[in-house]
């Protein structure tokens, strides 16, 4: 689980924001997304390395999930194009993106509550004949495939230690188990790229270890992983590459050990006042506001600190 220091380089040239990768799976250009007057995402260039685990980090509101939504077709950008596996997928619907092998999970887990755990899994399989309206009426045309899908689902559930729950409603699972189910379900489609939005959020420490193991496994099986996470320990442990966002922009990129020392990252993530006492800082901000400094600015600083 611990990073080996001898892994091959992923990037070309200097590790700066938007740097080129030796073997990129996603290449995006000029991606912007505005919500009213607020620019949520403004990324001139980003490349995600293939067969590596890339972490996308940044403070709340940095635009990580928005970028996820854009890349997976769940949101429409104001500008920008990107390609996946050499094929342009910008402007494609979410389901078409998924069909090309780029699957995602959600920050707020989307287990399908009133479907059994097994049905949740089976839904993840692609190219099912029985999902067509006419074939659905003719069970003998899809029964054989259904058995294959079920065997695969049971095997994956066993790997994720959910096999004893297979006939229960997904609604009866704990929050952590639902995270596992969502990840397992995504794997039913044999994806090329797995995008995980905060896989550790709300997961208890006992499950964290097994989740981390599963993510590292994905890479071992030849998949590429891009994940959003706040847990720095997790990022340090499993990521091969880290991309840092703040206020919609990429502020740093690099290997985890290097990027964590970057001043821009420390500023963006922990706030420029990370070494100061909170009470002292609040008092100073209040003095500045009273002295007629820009209150909006003071408010910004304060909100950053609270995170």
């Amino acid at each position: 689980m611990v990073n080996d220091t001898t892994r091959p380089a992923l990037h070309i040239g200097e590790a700066v924001p938007g740097c080129k990768k030796i073997d990129p799976i996603i290449i995006a250009d000029n991606v912007t997304r505005k919500f009213g007057g607020m620019t949520a995402v403004d990324v001139p260039h980003i490349e995600v390395p293939r067969n590596a685990i890339t972490a996308l980090i940044g403070p709340n509101g940095a635009g990580k999930t928005t970028l996820f939504n854009l890349l997976t077709g769940f949101d429409v950008p104001n500008t920008g194009e990107w390609s996946f596996n050499g094929e342009t997928i910008s402007g494609k619907s979410a389901y078409k993106v998924a069909q090309r092998g780029q699957v995602r999970t959600f920050q707020l887990t989307k287990s399908l509550a009133l479907l059994s755990v097994l049905d949740n899994m089976k839904l993840g399989a692609t190219n099912q004949r029985g999902e067509g309206l006419l074939h659905a009426l003719l069970p003998w045309t899809w029964k054989a495939q259904e058995a294959e899908v079920e065997a695969k689902a049971v095997e994956l559930l066993a790997r994720f230690k959910l096999d004893t729950k297979k006939d229960d409603y997904a609604a009866s699972l704990s929050g952590g188990q639902r995270k596992l189910l969502e990840m397992a379900r995504a794997l039913m489609s044999d994806p090329t790229l797995v995008m995980l939005d905060e896989p550790m959020a709300g997961v208890n420490p006992a499950l964290t270890q097994s989740l981390l193991g599963h993510i590292v496994d994905l890479k071992a099986q030849g998949m590429t992983v891009l994940f959003v996470e706040h847990d720095m320990h997790m990022v340090q442990t499993i990521a091969d590459w880290v991309i840092v966002m703040a206020e919609g922009k990429i502020v740093a990129e690099g290997e985890p050990s290097v990027v964590m020392q970057d001043q821009a990252v420390v500023d963006a993530y922990l706030g420029s006042n990370k070494d100061r006492d909170l009470g002292e800082l609040v008092a100073e901000i209040k003095r500045e506001v009273a002295a007629g400094a820009d209150p909006a600015l003071a408010g910004d600083d304060l909100s950053l600190e609270k995170e």
Partner: peptide, 24 residues
Amino acid sequence: SPWGRVIKGIREDEDAVRALGKNA
């Protein structure tokens, strides 16, 4: 049928179904 599984999935969460490559 698997078709029915997809529509029940849409009932529970349409976005999850789209994320699995189904044209909801």
